[in-house]
Amino acid sequence: MLNVGKIEEGFVIDHIAAGKSMQIYDHLGLGKLDCSVAIIKNARSVKMGKKDIIKVECPIDTLNLDILPILDRNININVIKDGEIVEKRHLALPREIKNVLKCRNPRCISSIEQGLTHVFYLADEENEIYRCRYCEEKFSESD
């Protein structure tokens, strides 16, 4: 097993489906942050066989993690402070997501209106379907 050193403050995003970590990296905008990020791909997992893990060293109020359960419901998040796990989060689907997802419908007003808050709401919890507040277009993970 590959070892990556402990972090003092930040997040360990665990139990990511193998191969999905780069998608999560992109959605969280980690490339734009000035902090240490470790991506571990295809780590051995008793439960999953293989999994990805992301470790992010940053102040814990820096990241908006709302999108994670939409991308992968099995993700666990360990919140680290002073080198210790202070919270284990298994995120529930948020009722509403603001300025995280962008509507891909070219006919949606959000494609042209300046300064508009991009809002998606949970339309169907059972099937995990989110729709754009303005045009009701379904969010597709492949977007």
Binding site: S110, R133, Y134
Partner: peptide, 10 residues
């Protein structure tokens, strides 16, 4: 009336 969907909502 607007050609873009959701414009009246905005």
């Amino acid at each position: 009336r607007h050609p873009k969907e959701g414009a009246p909502y905005v």
